[in-house]
């Protein structure tokens, strides 16, 4: 599979990424200017944790932001919800 080099990607995408950072920056400024206190807002915490993922040195950033913004999966959900599964093997 053809893969672009890092130099090609930065050349192709610098302006796009720059514009996205500016959008985020302006959103934060808008929040700053507005009346009201959202210090304890869960959404604000998620945004700032998301931005930390962008700045850390680990890879897999898109997946990690997705997981950060996701409800937890519990492997025991079937028992907890008391779902009656059809007895496939036994029937």
């Amino acid at each position: 599979m053809h893969e672009r080099t890092a130099a090609q990607i930065i050349a192709d995408e610098f302006l796009i990424a720059r514009a996205k950072i500016l959008e985020l920056a302006a959103t934060l400024d808008r929040l700053d200017r507005a009346d009201g206190d959202i210090e304890n807002s869960k959404q604000l915490v998620l945004l700032s944790q998301g931005m930390q993922i962008l700045c850390d040195s680990e890879s897999d950033k898109a997946k990690r932001v997705q997981l950060l913004m996701s409800r937890q999966y519990e492997p025991e959900w079937i028992e907890k919800m008391a779902i009656r599964r059809r007895d496939v093997e036994g029937s």
Binding site: S70, R71, Y73, R86, V88, E89
Partner: peptide, 21 residues
Amino acid sequence: HLEDKYQGTRMILDMLMGDSR
């Protein structure tokens, strides 16, 4: 979609893989 996707996808896969048919 959105915050329900990860949990829901895992639940769906559990149900599919729990059925040998």
